[in-house]
Protein backbone atom coordinates (compact mmCIF):
# COMPACT_ATOMS: atom_id res chain seq x y z
CA UNK A 1 0.00 0.00 0.00
CA UNK A 2 1.27 3.51 -0.74
CA UNK A 3 0.13 7.14 -0.87
CA UNK A 4 1.71 8.98 -3.83
CA UNK A 5 4.64 6.59 -3.74
CA UNK A 6 5.06 6.75 0.06
CA UNK A 7 5.01 3.20 1.40
CA UNK A 8 2.47 2.47 4.13
CA UNK A 9 4.05 -0.42 6.00
CA UNK A 10 1.97 -3.34 7.19
CA UNK A 11 2.44 -2.42 10.83
CA UNK A 12 0.41 -1.25 13.76
CA UNK A 13 0.53 1.21 16.62
CA UNK A 14 0.21 -0.45 19.99
CA UNK A 15 -1.63 1.61 22.58
CA UNK A 16 -2.71 1.31 26.20
CA UNK A 17 -5.70 2.18 28.36
CA UNK A 18 -5.16 5.31 30.42
CA UNK A 19 -7.17 7.39 32.83
CA UNK A 20 -8.11 10.68 31.27
CA UNK A 21 -9.87 13.95 31.89
CA UNK A 22 -10.62 17.25 30.20
CA UNK A 23 -10.74 20.72 31.72
CA UNK A 24 -11.76 24.03 30.18
CA UNK A 25 -9.75 27.14 30.94
CA UNK A 26 -10.92 30.66 30.13
CA UNK A 27 -9.20 34.02 30.34
CA UNK A 28 -9.92 37.64 29.41
CA UNK A 29 -7.66 37.45 26.36
CA UNK A 30 -5.67 35.03 24.25
CA UNK A 31 -2.39 36.09 25.83
CA UNK A 32 -3.19 34.96 29.37
CA UNK A 33 -5.11 31.98 28.04
CA UNK A 34 -2.14 30.73 26.09
CA UNK A 35 0.18 31.32 29.03
CA UNK A 36 -2.04 29.21 31.28
CA UNK A 37 -2.58 26.46 28.73
CA UNK A 38 1.09 26.08 27.75
CA UNK A 39 2.23 26.11 31.37
CA UNK A 40 -0.39 23.62 32.60
CA UNK A 41 0.44 21.17 29.81
CA UNK A 42 4.18 21.75 29.94
CA UNK A 43 6.56 18.94 30.91
CA UNK A 44 3.81 16.44 30.18
CA UNK A 45 5.17 14.53 27.23
CA UNK A 46 5.41 10.99 28.56
CA UNK A 47 4.27 9.14 31.64
CA UNK A 48 7.70 7.52 31.68
CA UNK A 49 9.11 10.54 33.49
CA UNK A 50 6.45 13.28 33.63
CA UNK A 51 3.71 11.42 35.45
CA UNK A 52 1.10 12.68 33.03
CA UNK A 53 0.69 13.27 29.32
CA UNK A 54 -1.21 16.41 28.42
CA UNK A 55 -1.89 18.82 25.66
CA UNK A 56 -4.15 21.40 24.13
CA UNK A 57 -7.13 19.75 22.49
CA UNK A 58 -8.62 22.86 20.90
CA UNK A 59 -9.16 26.59 21.32
CA UNK A 60 -12.70 27.60 22.14
CA UNK A 61 -14.75 30.56 20.99
CA UNK A 62 -16.38 32.65 23.73
CA UNK A 63 -19.77 31.24 22.74
CA UNK A 64 -18.54 27.75 23.63
CA UNK A 65 -17.26 28.48 27.14
CA UNK A 66 -19.20 28.62 30.41
CA UNK A 67 -18.42 32.27 31.11
CA UNK A 68 -18.45 33.65 27.57
CA UNK A 69 -14.72 34.38 27.38
CA UNK A 70 -12.04 32.89 25.12
CA UNK A 71 -11.19 29.38 26.24
CA UNK A 72 -9.15 26.28 25.67
CA UNK A 73 -9.81 22.58 26.23
CA UNK A 74 -6.96 20.64 27.82
CA UNK A 75 -6.66 16.85 28.01
CA UNK A 76 -4.67 14.97 30.65
CA UNK A 77 -3.76 11.27 30.62
CA UNK A 78 -2.11 9.13 33.30
CA UNK A 79 -1.70 5.47 34.09
CA UNK A 80 -3.78 5.59 37.27
CA UNK A 81 -6.49 7.64 38.87
CA UNK A 82 -4.23 8.50 41.78
CA UNK A 83 -1.48 9.90 39.58
CA UNK A 84 -3.93 11.82 37.42
CA UNK A 85 -5.58 13.33 40.47
CA UNK A 86 -2.34 14.53 42.03
CA UNK A 87 -1.00 15.85 38.71
CA UNK A 88 -4.24 17.65 37.89
CA UNK A 89 -4.50 19.40 41.23
CA UNK A 90 -0.83 20.37 41.10
CA UNK A 91 -1.01 21.70 37.56
CA UNK A 92 -4.28 23.59 37.98
CA UNK A 93 -3.05 24.93 41.32
CA UNK A 94 0.37 26.01 40.12
CA UNK A 95 -0.30 26.97 36.51
CA UNK A 96 -3.93 28.11 36.22
CA UNK A 97 -4.79 29.43 39.67
CA UNK A 98 -1.59 31.47 39.42
CA UNK A 99 -2.23 32.87 35.94
CA UNK A 100 -3.96 36.30 35.85
CA UNK A 101 -7.59 36.37 34.76
CA UNK A 102 -8.14 32.65 34.33
CA UNK A 103 -11.01 30.42 35.40
CA UNK A 104 -11.20 26.63 35.29
CA UNK A 105 -14.18 24.39 34.56
CA UNK A 106 -14.98 20.72 34.11
CA UNK A 107 -14.70 19.65 30.49
CA UNK A 108 -16.11 16.15 30.53
CA UNK A 109 -18.91 14.20 32.19
CA UNK A 110 -18.42 11.01 34.09
CA UNK A 111 -19.71 9.29 37.18
CA UNK A 112 -16.16 9.14 38.51
CA UNK A 113 -14.89 12.58 39.49
CA UNK A 114 -11.50 14.24 39.96
CA UNK A 115 -11.18 17.19 42.32
CA UNK A 116 -10.50 20.70 41.07
CA UNK A 117 -11.92 23.40 43.34
CA UNK A 118 -12.70 20.66 45.83
CA UNK A 119 -8.99 20.64 46.68
CA UNK A 120 -7.93 24.12 45.62
CA UNK A 121 -10.61 25.96 47.62
CA UNK A 122 -8.51 25.67 50.76
CA UNK A 123 -6.14 28.21 49.26
CA UNK A 124 -8.89 30.69 50.10
CA UNK A 125 -8.12 30.19 53.79
CA UNK A 126 -11.76 30.23 54.78
CA UNK A 127 -12.74 33.18 52.58
CA UNK A 128 -13.73 30.97 49.64
CA UNK A 129 -17.38 30.99 48.57
CA UNK A 130 -19.29 28.10 47.00
CA UNK A 131 -21.93 28.66 44.34
CA UNK A 132 -24.17 25.90 43.10
CA UNK A 133 -26.05 26.25 39.82
CA UNK A 134 -28.16 23.17 39.09
CA UNK A 135 -25.95 20.15 39.56
CA UNK A 136 -22.72 22.08 39.12
CA UNK A 137 -20.78 23.55 42.00
CA UNK A 138 -18.20 26.30 41.71
CA UNK A 139 -15.71 27.88 44.07
CA UNK A 140 -14.84 31.54 44.22
CA UNK A 141 -11.35 31.69 45.66
CA UNK A 142 -10.09 35.17 46.56
CA UNK A 143 -6.70 36.02 45.04
CA UNK A 144 -4.70 39.24 44.83
CA UNK A 145 -6.17 40.07 41.42
CA UNK A 146 -9.81 39.37 42.34
CA UNK A 147 -11.39 35.92 42.38
CA UNK A 148 -10.30 32.62 40.87
CA UNK A 149 -13.42 30.81 39.71
CA UNK A 150 -13.02 27.04 39.66
CA UNK A 151 -15.51 24.20 39.26
CA UNK A 152 -15.72 21.72 42.13
CA UNK A 153 -14.59 18.69 40.11
CA UNK A 154 -14.36 17.23 36.64
CA UNK A 155 -15.12 13.87 35.08
CA UNK A 156 -12.73 10.93 34.95
CA UNK A 157 -12.90 8.59 31.97
CA UNK A 158 -10.86 5.81 30.41
CA UNK A 159 -8.85 6.96 27.42
CA UNK A 160 -6.09 5.53 25.25
CA UNK A 161 -2.45 6.50 25.24
CA UNK A 162 0.22 5.69 22.72
CA UNK A 163 -1.43 5.89 19.33
CA UNK A 164 1.39 6.76 16.96
CA UNK A 165 2.94 6.70 13.55
CA UNK A 166 6.50 7.14 12.30
CA UNK A 167 7.54 9.31 9.38
CA UNK A 168 10.52 7.79 7.59
CA UNK A 169 12.10 10.49 5.43
CA UNK A 170 15.15 11.21 3.33
CA UNK A 171 16.57 13.79 5.72
CA UNK A 172 15.67 16.11 8.60
CA UNK A 173 14.15 18.93 6.51
CA UNK A 174 11.83 16.48 4.76
CA UNK A 175 10.86 14.72 7.99
CA UNK A 176 10.34 17.99 9.84
CA UNK A 177 8.15 19.45 7.11
CA UNK A 178 6.07 16.27 6.91
CA UNK A 179 5.65 16.16 10.69
CA UNK A 180 4.56 19.78 10.78
CA UNK A 181 2.01 19.14 8.05
CA UNK A 182 0.68 16.20 10.05
CA UNK A 183 0.46 18.17 13.29
CA UNK A 184 -1.34 21.03 11.55
CA UNK A 185 -3.86 18.58 10.15
CA UNK A 186 -4.45 17.00 13.56
CA UNK A 187 -4.66 20.15 15.66
CA UNK A 188 -8.16 20.91 16.78
CA UNK A 189 -9.52 17.40 16.16
CA UNK A 190 -11.87 16.45 18.95
CA UNK A 191 -10.72 14.05 21.62
CA UNK A 192 -6.97 13.88 20.96
CA UNK A 193 -3.77 15.60 22.00
CA UNK A 194 -0.20 15.33 20.78
CA UNK A 195 1.77 15.59 24.01
CA UNK A 196 5.32 15.97 22.66
CA UNK A 197 7.09 19.24 21.74
CA UNK A 198 5.30 20.72 18.79
CA UNK A 199 3.39 17.44 18.62
CA UNK A 200 6.48 15.53 17.47
CA UNK A 201 9.01 13.22 19.14
CA UNK A 202 12.42 12.36 17.73
CA UNK A 203 13.44 9.96 20.47
CA UNK A 204 11.06 7.05 20.16
CA UNK A 205 11.80 4.39 22.73
CA UNK A 206 11.77 0.67 23.06
CA UNK A 207 10.99 -1.23 26.24
CA UNK A 208 14.01 -2.04 28.40
CA UNK A 209 17.69 -1.22 28.33
CA UNK A 210 21.03 -2.85 28.82
CA UNK A 211 21.21 -0.64 31.93
CA UNK A 212 19.11 -2.19 34.68
CA UNK A 213 17.79 1.06 36.13
CA UNK A 214 16.26 2.20 32.86
CA UNK A 215 12.81 0.98 31.82
CA UNK A 216 13.06 2.42 28.31
CA UNK A 217 15.84 3.25 25.90
CA UNK A 218 16.36 4.50 22.37
CA UNK A 219 14.47 2.71 19.62
CA UNK A 220 17.64 1.52 17.90
CA UNK A 221 15.78 -0.18 15.05
CA UNK A 222 14.72 3.28 13.84
CA UNK A 223 17.95 5.17 14.52
CA UNK A 224 19.53 5.92 11.12
CA UNK A 225 23.01 6.22 12.58
CA UNK A 226 22.77 2.64 13.86
CA UNK A 227 21.67 1.13 10.54
CA UNK A 228 24.91 -0.73 10.13
CA UNK A 229 25.43 -1.51 13.77
CA UNK A 230 22.14 -3.20 14.75
CA UNK A 231 21.00 -6.32 12.95
CA UNK A 232 17.29 -5.54 13.24
CA UNK A 233 17.32 -2.02 11.74
CA UNK A 234 14.00 -1.15 10.11
CA UNK A 235 15.48 1.56 7.94
CA UNK A 236 16.47 1.19 4.29
CA UNK A 237 19.49 3.14 3.03
CA UNK A 238 17.43 6.01 1.61
CA UNK A 239 15.99 6.90 5.06
CA UNK A 240 18.10 9.41 6.96
CA UNK A 241 15.63 10.72 9.55
CA UNK A 242 12.63 9.39 11.47
CA UNK A 243 10.13 11.45 13.44
CA UNK A 244 7.23 10.07 15.46
CA UNK A 245 3.85 11.53 16.27
CA UNK A 246 2.29 10.20 19.45
CA UNK A 247 -1.46 10.54 19.98
CA UNK A 248 -3.42 10.23 23.20
CA UNK A 249 -7.16 10.10 22.78
CA UNK A 250 -10.44 9.79 24.61
CA UNK A 251 -11.55 6.95 22.30
CA UNK A 252 -10.23 4.59 19.63
CA UNK A 253 -12.31 6.40 17.02
CA UNK A 254 -10.71 9.73 17.91
CA UNK A 255 -7.23 8.22 17.59
CA UNK A 256 -8.07 6.59 14.25
CA UNK A 257 -9.37 9.91 12.92
CA UNK A 258 -6.24 11.66 14.12
CA UNK A 259 -3.84 9.08 12.69
CA UNK A 260 -5.60 9.12 9.33
CA UNK A 261 -5.55 12.92 9.07
CA UNK A 262 -1.91 13.03 10.14
CA UNK A 263 -0.66 10.30 7.82
CA UNK A 264 -2.45 11.74 4.79
CA UNK A 265 -0.99 15.18 5.52
CA UNK A 266 2.49 13.79 6.10
CA UNK A 267 2.36 12.00 2.73
CA UNK A 268 1.15 15.06 0.84
CA UNK A 269 3.39 15.64 -2.15
CA UNK A 270 4.49 12.04 -2.13
CA UNK A 271 8.10 10.86 -2.50
CA UNK A 272 9.00 14.15 -4.14
CA UNK A 273 8.76 15.77 -0.69
CA UNK A 274 11.30 13.33 0.67
CA UNK A 275 8.98 11.09 2.67
CA UNK A 276 9.80 7.44 2.01
CA UNK A 277 7.50 5.42 4.29
CA UNK A 278 5.04 5.52 7.19
CA UNK A 279 5.54 3.00 9.97
CA UNK A 280 4.22 2.58 13.52
CA UNK A 281 5.68 1.80 16.91
CA UNK A 282 4.69 -1.37 18.74
CA UNK A 283 5.98 -3.96 21.13
CA UNK A 284 4.99 -7.01 19.15
CA UNK A 285 1.40 -6.74 20.30
CA UNK A 286 2.09 -8.27 23.68
CA UNK A 287 1.76 -5.20 25.92
CA UNK A 288 -1.08 -3.02 24.75
CA UNK A 289 -4.64 -4.16 23.99
CA UNK A 290 -5.26 -1.46 21.36
CA UNK A 291 -3.74 -2.16 17.95
CA UNK A 292 -4.16 0.47 15.25
CA UNK A 293 -3.13 -1.12 11.94
CA UNK A 294 -1.95 1.59 9.57
CA UNK A 295 -3.61 0.18 6.50
CA UNK A 296 -6.92 -0.32 8.31
CA UNK A 297 -6.73 3.20 9.71
CA UNK A 298 -6.31 4.62 6.22
CA UNK A 299 -9.06 2.41 4.83
CA UNK A 300 -11.52 3.43 7.57
Amino acid sequence: MDIDGVEIRDSFAEAFPMRATRILVTAPDRGWLEAAARTATGFATSVIACGVEAGIERWLDPADTPDGRPGVALLFFATSRRTLESQLVARVGQCILTCPGTACYAGIDGSERLPLGRSLRFFGDGHQIAKRFGERRFWRIPVMEGEFLCEHDTGLVTGIGGGNFLILARDFPAASAAARRAVAAMEGLAGIVLPFPGGVVRSGSKVGSRYAKLSASTNDAYCPTLRGRVEHSALPPEVGCVLEIVIDGLSADAIVAGMRAGIVAACAGGRANGVRAIDAGNYGGRLGPHHFRLREVLAA
Binding site: P66, D67, G68, K131, F133, G134, F138, R140, E147, L149
Partner: peptide, 17 residues
Protein backbone atom coordinates in the same frame (compact mmCIF):
# COMPACT_ATOMS: atom_id res chain seq x y z
CA UNK B 1 -16.19 47.58 43.74
CA UNK B 2 -14.92 44.55 41.82
CA UNK B 3 -15.47 42.43 38.74
CA UNK B 4 -17.32 39.18 39.50
CA UNK B 5 -16.98 36.52 36.83
CA UNK B 6 -19.37 34.13 38.56
CA UNK B 7 -22.22 36.40 37.51
CA UNK B 8 -21.67 35.14 33.96
CA UNK B 9 -22.36 31.61 35.22
CA UNK B 10 -25.47 32.82 37.01
CA UNK B 11 -26.76 34.48 33.82
CA UNK B 12 -26.10 31.32 31.82
CA UNK B 13 -27.76 29.11 34.43
CA UNK B 14 -30.89 31.27 34.43
CA UNK B 15 -31.01 31.35 30.64
CA UNK B 16 -30.46 27.63 30.08
CA UNK B 17 -32.53 26.30 32.96
Amino acid sequence: AHEFLWLALLERHLRET
